[in-house]
Amino acid sequence: MLKYISRRLLYTVILLLLVSLSIFYIFDLIPVDPARLVCSKSCTTALVEANRHRLGLDVSVLEQWWRFIQGLFQGRTYGEGGIKDIYCGAPSFGYSFNRHACVSTIMAEAFPITLSLTIGAFIMWLSIGISLGILAARKKGKFADRASTAFVLIGTSLPTFITGIMVVLFIVLKFHLVNPLELGDWQNPFTNPLGWLRTFFFPCATLAIAYAATYTRFTRSNILEISTEDYIRTARAKGLSEKVILRKHTLRAALAPIVTIAGLDFAGLLGGAIITEGIFGLSGLGKLSIKAVTQTYDLPIIVATTLVGSAFVVIMNLIVDVAYAYIDPRVRTT
């Protein structure tokens, strides 16, 4: 098992290197010249070239990538040939000339916001989705099942920008449950849990609704499917009560696949919940990257957020696989 994990880790590193390399090539292909963008109105070819050198774009893509990788481990000095040199310590994801800050510093500010949003939403959607799914499966065909089906339909068909806007409109603006001025404030959940809850509860809920709906449906159908398995009949033949059968036999098997999906959904969101962050004015990774792409074309930030996002997915994949092997003994020994 340890051998397996170390091999998988090696693959993960190689994969991330390849992903980062392809990110560099992709952005090289985009017909936007960052060196010209940062140039003022009185731009000359010489100035553009100087900018290009300062941005580090005057070398081959491979070289740019290599410098980036080195910077990750050693830290790196930026702005060579400019007014002054800037040093960003390891791990350095680059320097944003647009915001005059090391990308790692910018990300370090945005990441806790995204992380707490994701974790909050994750806990909500798992608890809502799984318990509703269990309820629906147990009361199959009855009112509770139908109500949860309605929830699933609404949750999956309403895009987050609609639910998000509705939440803002009603809860924040109409009922004044949250001071609109506080929206988007970063509150440390450890030092100020109530404050965090005030700012983050509704964004988390917005994000959670869509996911909870999918998880409800998934949990319900899995439980119903597992309930027809022979080994559930065996459990019943032993004389176990329905409660024990559900808790110990059905749920264990029904929820195992949820680990995989939940892990990947979680990782995907760590890259940034673009719409939710936008609506609630949270300056998380999603907002950071969308702004870098659409407004400022801040290449170092784009590269860094993309890379971090994909790293989460790849690493989470590994964690999920290991966790699954732990849950399902059949995977462990074959």
Binding site: M1, K3, Y4, R7, A325, V331, R332, T334
Partner: peptide, 14 residues
């Protein structure tokens, strides 16, 4: 002398 051998990969381990 007909032979049919299958190669089977294991999930963990090489």
């Amino acid at each position: 002398g007909l032979k049919k051998h299958f190669k089977v990969h294991s999930t963990f381990g090489r």
